[in-house]
Design a protein around this nucleic acid. Structure first.
Length: 470
RNA sequence: GGUCCCUUCGUCUAGUGGCCUAGGACGCUGCCCUUUCACGGCGGAAACACGGGUUCGAGUCCCGUAGGGAUCACCA
């Protein structure tokens, strides 16, 4: 490690074969937090050595996902493929030092050996040419394989999983340079992590076994081994592994569903990590508190109910002008016209109480539509039942009462309705329920008098008369 | 199948040998508040996978069993 590097360097190293899924997002979050918690650096490396499967779209989606989550990385994102020369150089060095060797076997030959070994209950280590270098043929393409130790064992003291030991005899002579001269992931990770000065590797525990295959490269090069923290995977709500056809979504899908990035961060943080009984954890607190030791060891399931409750909490912390941009375009879609100045003014007053009732952003835009000019408003079945021969005249009369009001504020509106009810010897609820139905069509809204105030005298009375006349 | 990892309420988790009659959160649920829906307040049901040890004492340590997961490519 270079000496001018900070004490802690982490990295997130996604392969750009798809979107940034929820597990990757959490891995990125943990790496980011650990770096930020320790005044270190958080690096981003795109593992695009598999050029066949890597796409620019996927890279863009990953970058966008990280940005949405608010996880900023230090420096430029590094393309692993662009470092192929360096990887080849190390492969060559390994070859020259006798830690790696040329393998002339063909794919078919290898597959054959592998199947045979497996059928016999043996393990195949890919070592056909391990001890036959003297017989190396001329002008034949070859791959380069790592010459793995056969005796002894390696132990990793993983920051999450604890002490883990694997016998060296389990290790195969993996390919580090393909016969077409391109480096494999197994070589590239090690070289890049070393060159980037990565001190702590925090990644999914699907890489735990790989760590042991990578160790011999560090040793052969005389490089110090980084600290490892292998975090458990996230499963779907049913406990099954998350896959593309089974509930794995890109973070953009969660954005579309109406989750706030701060809610997502809080949820992901808490999914597999804890700080006593704390549930609502601000990003600053997360940075102050985050550590590797409190990461749980078992896999966890994604639970929409819980993230909903977190999201509704964060929704409530936003004020009206912060909220409006989040819902504006969805709302305009819903009401089929651009927001007018009056509508916007109503919304600025109504939004906080709408947010209080919402779990996700669409809940807000849907209820916000009530404050727009959408006459005649649609009625739910339940609301429609409020309009009877009995209630229609009441609505009409209340409309007249309200029209006579010279000051339009919730206090006076409420008094007017209450005294109307009293004069007719009606229970307040008998009056208010039909009113509410006529004004909202059955959708959720806040306090009735306040709703009327925000809607304005003209619009309110028009809505009431729509139903009174129907 | 080999190797490695994991296992506390339905879910996320607290718990690091006595403070555990196992705590919190989400969800579920009863009551209260109330002009609706929410919010809020007060309650409730709900878990140490199983079996052996070690120990005066085990959710906590050890060993087995069962279940789940990961990995065994010229993918990453």
């Amino acid at each position: 490690m270079t000496s001018d590097m900070p004490d802690i360097v982490t990295r997130f190293a996604p392969s750009p074969t798809g979107f940034l899924h929820i597990g990757g997002a959490r891995t990125a979050l943990y790496n980011w937090l650990f770096a930020r918690a320790n005044g270190g650096k958080f690096l981003l490396r795109i593992e695009d050595t598999d050029t066949k499967r890597s796409t620019q779209e996927a890279i863009d989606a990953i970058l966008k996902g990280l940005q949405w989550l608010g996880l900023d990385w230090d420096g430029d994102a590094i393309s692993q493929a662009s470092r192929a020369d360096r990887h080849r150089e190390i492969a060559q060095a390994l070859l020259e030092s006798g830690n790696a060797y040329k393998c002339f076997a063909t794919a078919e030959e290898l597959a054959e050996k592998r199947d045979a070994a497996r059928a016999g209950g043996e393990r195949f280590r890919g070592d056909i040419w391990r001890d036959k270098q003297a017989e190396a043929p001329e002008n034949t393409p070859y791959s380069i394989r790592m010459k793995m130790p056969r005796e002894g064992a390696h132990t990793i003291v993983d920051r999450v999983q604890g002490s883990v030991t694997v016998q060296n005899a389990e290790l195969d002579d993996m390919i580090i340079l393909r016969s077409d001269g391109t480096p494999t992931y197994m070589l590239a990770v090690v070289v890049d992590d070393y060159d980037m000065g990565v001190t702590h590797i925090v990644r999914g525990d699907d890489h735990l076994n790989n760590a042991f295959r990578q160790l011999p490269i560090y040793e052969a090069m005389g490089w110090s081994v980084p600290e490892y923290a292998h975090i458990p995977l996230i499963h779907g709500p049913d406990g099954k592994k998350l896959s593309k056809r089974h509930g794995a979504l890109g973070v953009d899908a969660y954005e579309d569903m109406g989750f706030l990035p701060e809610a997502m961060r809080n949820y992901l943080l808490r999914l597999g990590w804890s700080h006593g009984d704390d549930e609502i954890i601000s990003t600053q607190e997360a940075i102050n508190w985050f550590n590797l030791e409190n990461i749980g060891k078992g896999p966890s399931r994604f639970d929409f109910d819980k993230i909903d409750s977190l999201n509704s909490h964060y929704l409530r912390t936003l004020n009206a002008s912060e909220l409006l941009p989040y819902i504006k375009s969805a709302l305009e879609n819903l009401i089929d016209h651009a927001l007018s100045k009056t509508e916007e003014a109503r919304l600025l007053k109504a939004l906080p109480s709408l947010a209080e009732r919402a779990k996700r952003l669409p809940d807000i835009s849907e209820s916000a539509a009530l404050y727009c000019d959408i006459r005649p408003i649609a009625l739910t079945d339940k609301a429609a039942k409020q309009f009877t021969d009995e209630t229609r005249p009441v609505i009409a009369d209340v409309a007249n009462e309200l029209e006579a009001l010279t000051s339009w504020n919730s206090e006076d509106i409420k008094n007017s309705i209450m005294s109307f009810a009293e004069a007719r010897d009606l229970k307040p609820g008998k009056v208010m329920q039909p009113l509410r139905a006529a004004l909202t069509g059955g959708k959720q809204s806040g306090d009735l008098a306040e709703t009327l105030e925000i809607l304005g005298q003209v619009e309110s009375i028009a809505r009431l008369r729509d139903q009174a006349a129907a």
